[in-house]
Design a protein around this nucleic acid. Structure first.
Length: 261
DNA sequence: ATGGTTGGTCGCCAA
């Protein structure tokens, strides 16, 4: 089964690209972040006409997550209990072909120490509790999405310049470690230890052509999921395409392949 | 440190 995670940065602006990714990759499941649309205004019809099911958890203007699949998903849950920011639509989970999938859009945090940063850490702490409860089930479980955290120096173009700053602080990395302490592994890092694999490039300053990026979109899996994960890769072409005529998202899709029976 | 681009929405906020 193929699962893709992609911060689409507005599904309405990039609907044609979403349809293109679905057509090109033929995934079983596409997990989107930053759909930036209410459930009412989500382009349900266009996706249904192309043969896809969509489960959505959105809001006006900001955030928003969605799961788009060939077959209907099971056990769909929006949001999570004890969320310190319940009004922000940042997580949706569902079961696809027996695999539990959590699709998360982690708070950016803006700057270390500010109120948004404090909320980011609290939200991640609460998510850890939800993750722990999910892992009580022995089935393959994957959490993927835009984590807005750079794991280590290999995952950013200028590690020294960013050290301790937002996305790279010890406190954020400790929250990432807490997921690993639950037994989850970074499925991408199971495949390669190579430095300079990025999933996001700033729109500003020609960051993409200069490859000034970061790996902040991740796929974590429990041992059961890791055991059947055969490939993880970044669809860099999707970020590349589009110079000025067909605008890309600032994130590239992260493609995860699991060998399900 | 600022930079400076994009999206939603229409004066800015967020990333």
């Amino acid at each position: 089964m193929k699962v893709i995670s992609w911060n689409v940065n507005s599904i309405r602006t990039r609907l044609e690209r979403v349809l293109g990714v679905l057509e090109r990759h033929q995934p079983d499941l596409l997990c989107l972040q930053e759909t930036k649309v209410t459930d009412e205004d989500f382009p349900h019809t266009a996706l249904a006409n192309a043969g896809w099911h969509a489960h959505v958890h959105g809001q006006k203007t900001y955030n928003g997550v969605a799961m788009i699949s060939r077959e209907p998903l099971e056990e769909v849950v929006c949001n999570f209990d004890d969320n310190p920011v319940p009004e922000e639509a940042r997580i949706i989970r569902a079961t696809c072909q027996g695999v539990r999938v959590l699709n998360a859009y982690v708070i950016n945090g803006k700057e270390v120490g500010c109120d948004k940063y404090v909320r980011k850490l609290a939200w991640l702490d609460a998510l850890t509790q939800t993750m722990k409860a999910e892992l009580a089930e022995p089935r393959p479980t994957v959490m993927l999405g835009d984590f807005n955290i750079v794991t280590d120096d290999r995952d950013i173009y200028d590690a020294d310049g960013w050290r301790g700053k937002i996305l790279c602080s010890d406190e954020e990395r400790a929250r990432l470690q807490s997921f690993l302490s639950l037994g989850m592994v970074d499925l991408h890092r199971e495949q390669t230890s190579e430095a300079g694999i990025f999933t996001w490039w700033d729109y500003r300053g020609g960051a993409f052509p200069r490859n000034m990026g970061m790996r902040i979109d991740l796929a974590l899996g429990n041992p059961s999921a890791a055991g059947i994960c055969t490939d993880v890769g970044v669809d860099r072409d999707e970020r590349k395409k589009g110079d000025w005529e067909a605008k890309p998202s600032d994130h590239a899709p992260l493609v995860v392949v699991l060998k399900t029976s």
